[in-house]
């Protein structure tokens, strides 16, 4: 399945490499930006399945990115990229709702695995919610159906 992935990093080299890896090795589509301030607009324009973001950027930090994405749609997983030696902020990011984090430098395979896991999480979360919703509406329907007779 082809997913839409948004990548935010103030370092253009990172964007080049990540886009290259993802488009070479997966069917997913990639949108990139060096400017995190574009995030709200990008989220409004397209339905992303995953956001990958750098944690430390001058314009907006990764934690704000997580908040913005989660406010927009809590079912979009966010994978955070952190610099070596900043484990604490990575943990903070996960605490604030990031699905996973990955520490630079990392191998090509690591990001591919992280992407597939995050997408799988989204699929399951959505499925769960749909099931719950269906059950809920069935319940409500049953209730509505029964209530006149109570």
């Amino acid at each position: 399945m082809s997913a839409k992935i948004l990548i935010i990093d103030d370092e253009p080299d990172m964007l080049i490499m990540l886009e290259m890896i993802i488009t070479d090795k997966t069917p997913h589509q990639v949108v990139t930006t060096t400017n995190p301030l574009e995030l709200p607009e990008l989220l409004a324009q397209e339905n992303f399945n995953l956001v990958i973001t750098d944690l430390k950027m001058p314009a907006m930090d990764g934690i704000e990115v997580i908040d913005t994405v989660k406010n927009h749609d809590p079912e979009i997983p966010v994978v955070v990229i952190t610099a070596f030696g900043t484990l604490e902020s990575a943990e903070e990011a996960v605490h604030r709702g990031a699905y996973d984090f990955i520490t630079k430098p990392f191998r090509k395979e690591q990001i591919l695995v992280a992407i597939e896991r995050a997408l799988e999480w989204q699929r399951i979360t959505r499925e769960n919610r749909e099931l719950r919703d269906r059950m809920q509406s069935e319940k409500t329907a049953a209730k509505t159906f029964r209530s006149p007779g109570d």
Partner: peptide, 9 residues
């Protein structure tokens, strides 16, 4: 290797 890294590295 096939590593991803940035200028900071």
């Amino acid at each position: 290797g096939d590593y991803v890294f940035d200028p900071q590295f």
